[in-house]
Amino acid sequence: MLTLPRSVHDQMVAHCLIGLPDEACGLLGGDLASGEAVTCYPTRNLAASAKLYTVDPTEHLRADRDAEGNGRSIIGVFHSHTHTEAYPSPTDVAQAPDPAWHYVLVSLRDTYPMVRSYRIVAGAIEEEPVRLLAR
């Protein structure tokens, strides 16, 4: 299960909306063991594409240092699908770097953004519940 404070959820969705018409992406910092995100790190999409994303490696390093410096880790990545559902694409699965991470998809296809989260282990996709905290 992925736990998202409302503020992290809203920051993530806002970054995806601001990124239109391109896909947007970012990282989540938090506690890997419990799956609770604490910080949203919006990053640049170096691919600058409506169909692909690449997290800016320099911003990834900065986010990783910030998270580790606060006794946390990067626990996952989020990105938007601008015209498709919130489900990992073959590209997403092929390039999923860490089986411990949470892979969050924000679909902007419909009127309201749809947020869903997945674990991707050895190419197998499993959806997980997303719990929203009021704060």
């Binding site: 994303y53 997290v55 015209h83 092929a94």
Partner: peptide
């Protein structure tokens, strides 16, 4: 020296099986 995974992906695969 720091090592991090390259984080990338996208809505379509290389073959474009999910056209917009």
């Amino acid at each position: 020296l720091s090592i991090l995974p390259a984080v990338a992906g996208g809505a379509v695969d290389a073959g474009g099986l999910h056209p917009r």
